[in-house]
């Protein structure tokens, strides 16, 4: 009878707890269901905008076009316009200089300060350690404004310090000099983003075996030699990671520029993100050109990202 074999199957079933049978999803289905919120969010806010930005960069998107909802195709027109725009090329150049200044300073300072707070016998180091995260929490726009106040020519805080110390007789125009304006916006940026770099380096320092230093001391190596031949080579991976991460973020600097110079004096501090923002969201409200310039920025950072991903994967393996 065929019914027997069916019933035979039913006899085997109670070996698995019956309540689990209805409730438990397979790993494949569960994996999909648990990722639905992330997939929807990333599709809407990350994947779609990246492709839509490319689309917009090949179209004319002015305020009038936005109202109509129709964007005429212009081919490479927007790219031709930005590459022919001296201001865009200047913005790229400024971005490079800004990034070079801030990232170099950050890595050097981060190594120095991480080594400093690693000296546990020095009690002042504990205060430093306590304060290290502080700049990280300050809103970038507030940070920029506070420095803008410090830089102020007429009544700024930096000039007050120097007057009080008797070091100057005339006020210094910190952020108003076109030759040094990029440095003036780089310093607040370094101040705010330094904690991240210090934490990365400090964490890597904890991983260095102290016996290495003891062995080197026994062999007669001085502090400088120990730093040069042990610390620095062992820190190299984390230094590269810090460099790549900080470089790609510094390329997109925006808040401090808005707060301190708004691109000025003249156009001395126009950077890439500022250019895209100004073209798209201030007169002439040309979102097509804004997208094209933002895409150039994304491509430059994308190359860095690929380098970083390769780097991480090599470190994991």
């Amino acid at each position: 009878m065929t019914g027997v074999s069916v019933r035979g199957g039913a006899v085997a079933a109670p070996l698995q707890p019956p309540f689990r049978f209805g409730r438990e999803l397979s790993a494949r289905v569960l994996g999909f269901v648990m990722n639905i919120p992330t997939l929807v969010t990333l599709a809407l806010v990350l994947a779609y905008p990246i492709f839509y930005a490319a689309y917009l960069s090949f179209h004319r998107v002015s305020l009038a076009d936005l109202r109509r909802g129709v964007f005429p195709f212009v081919g490479l027109g927007n790219y031709e316009r930005i590459l022919a725009d001296p201001l865009f090329l200047l913005a790229l150049k400024n971005t490079l200089i800004f990034t070079a200044i801030s990232v170099t300073a950050e890595v050097v300072l981060a190594i120095a300060i991480a080594l400093l707070i690693d000296q546990r016998q020095v009690w002042t180091g504990r205060i430093t350690k306590f304060l290290i995260l502080l700049p990280y929490a300050v809103p970038p726009i507030a940070n920029g404004l506070i420095w803008s106040f410090m830089y102020n020519f007429d009544f700024g805080f930096l000039n007050r310090i120097l007057f009080t110390l008797g070091m100057i007789h005339d006020p210094i125009n910190w952020a108003g000099n076109p030759d040094t304006a990029l440095i003036a916006v780089a310093i607040p940026y370094i101040w705010r983003t330094l904690p991240f770099a210090i934490l990365l380096v400090h964490a890597a320092l904890q991983g260095i075996n102290p016996e290495l230093y003891e062995a080197a001391s026994v062999d007669g190596a001085g502090a400088l030699q120990r730093f040069w031949h042990i610390t620095l080579p062992l820190l190299r991976p984390i230094i590269v990671v810090t460099l790549v991460l900080r470089t790609s973020f510094a390329f997109a600097v925006f808040d401090e520029i808005l707060a301190i110079t708004q691109g000025g004096p003249g156009d001395a501090t126009w950077v890439a993100a500022w250019y895209s923002y100004r073209k798209g969201f201030a007169p002439p409200f040309d979102i097509g050109v804004g997208s094209a310039s933002a895409y150039v920025l994304a491509l430059i950072v994308g190359v860095l990202a690929i380098a970083y991903v390769k780097l991480i994967y090599r470190r994991i393996q």
């Binding site: 990350l46 905008p49 930005a53 998107v61 895209s276 950072v301 970083y308």
Partner: peptide
Amino acid sequence: VNVFARFVPIIVLMIPLYVT
């Protein structure tokens, strides 16, 4: 993808998001 995603500058995402 997530490792990659953190590199995308916000300004690149915000222009199309504004339109959408």
